[in-house]
Design a protein around this nucleic acid. Structure first.
Lengths: 215, 215
DNA sequence: ACTTGTCCTGTCATGACGTCAGCTTACCGA
DNA sequence: TCGGTAAGCTGACGTCATGACAGGACAAGT
């Protein structure tokens, strides 16, 4: 399905090639976690991977291209986020539970991949289509599930007609992503992680159902 | 208050110097709008300003330093966002009006300065203290006003005791900022700008008051 | 005109970028 | 066992950005 892995000049990569390729990706990932995106240089990544810059250019057109690759891998993992919402109820105590677990799972996922997600976010904000398609791919699972939940409640008449499920879902997901990116900012503003989560869950619950949760 | 403008090597800048300095900032601003942050080079900024790279380095240590300068200017303008909330009511129809105007004003401000705000966001997310202090400075006016509003309603017993005003306010502000950054993403997801705003306003109103607005 | 301090640039060493030809290594069929 | 072929890697190179410096250009006061 995914076709063969190819080098920039068209050769198919074999076992060894794929290994160094992956090593380069891993090292890049690590560098993104430890230094500002702007300062990540091909030469450093190559050095860290114990290879030469020329090798890097065999597998990727540039740093951006390699980042897209990493993000693509992450996006498939991100599909697992759907499970946080699949078949969950938004009614009564179960609804509160659903909101809490969504917040928990989402923040955890974001924290685990924050370095790459930062770059994806930037690329998307800069209007690069490849990046924001990727961003959608990552968020779509949660986004769609949330939108469905809202639409369903709307069909039952429990949510106002003039609410746009997609808009609300998108905004809530954006909120979760933004808060996850700036968790440190919150803590220096006097809000502890532990306090943050229930308040986020509250906002999600309010947004989806239009009502306060029953705890 | 702001002290004199100084060059990197300590001289005080005169009239002409300040002019070129500002010109460099303006050109940098423009470049940030038109090309990815990672690709903005000192030499391009200098060329665009009709001067040489060496001149740039007289006034700023590097691109990052210049961005901080621009952002600082913007932060002072950002203080005007407080007016969107100062002395507004969150009750009844007035509350809905307040929410709408907040969303409107915020999105407008963000859109006007999106290029620099993207970079500030990135820097903050990467953990650079200078950037996230700046980000707080920009958002504080709105953040504090919102938190105050929640706290006030809480004191009146109209909002649950276990809500943390700062956490809710911070999350809502983060949501507004994130949505503003990714407006294009929404539109390609089938949500029009015009639809987005009322739904955002709804979420803000729900978050602050815990109730649906009366329209 | 002369001095003084501000302002800008030419130039240079350093180092990253991205390409290429060519060397080494692994695999495979005869 | 032995080439042959393709994969895999790198040294070297031209190009370009960086950042520092010394010195020339310019405005203002005397």
């Amino acid at each position: 399905m995914t076709g063969q892995v190819r080098t920039v000049d068209g050769r198919v990569a074999g076992r060894r090639g794929q290994a160094t390729r992956q090593k380069l990706l891993d090292c890049l990932s690590e560098m993104l976690s430890s230094s500002p995106y702007r300062d990540v240089k091909v030469i450093d990544v190559a050095r860290k991977a114990g290879t030469s810059p020329a090798t890097f250019y065999q597998y990727f057109p540039d740093v951006e291209g390699a980042v897209l690759e990493i993000a693509e891998q992450m996006a498939t993992e991100g599909a697992a986020l759907t499970e946080l919402l699949e078949g969950r109820s938004w009614a009564g105590k179960a609804g509160w539970q659903t909101a809490q677990e969504l917040v928990d799972g989402f923040l955890e996922f974001w924290r685990r991949n924050d370095a790459i997600l930062r770059v994806v976010d930037l690329g998307a904000a800069e209007g690069d289509k490849r990046f924001y398609k990727l961003r959608m791919k990552i968020l779509n699972s949660v986004n769609n599930s949330l939108a469905d939940a809202v639409a369903e409640l709307q069909a039952k008449g429990r949510v106002d007609k003039d609410v746009n499920p997609a808009a609300v879902a998108g905004s809530l997901v954006a909120m979760l992503a933004a808060v996850a990116s700036h968790q440190k900012g919150f803590s220096s503003w006097g809000v502890k992680q532990a306090e943050l989560k229930p308040n986020l869950a509250l906002l999600v619950h309010l947004g989806v159902t239009g009502r306060k949760p029953t705890k």
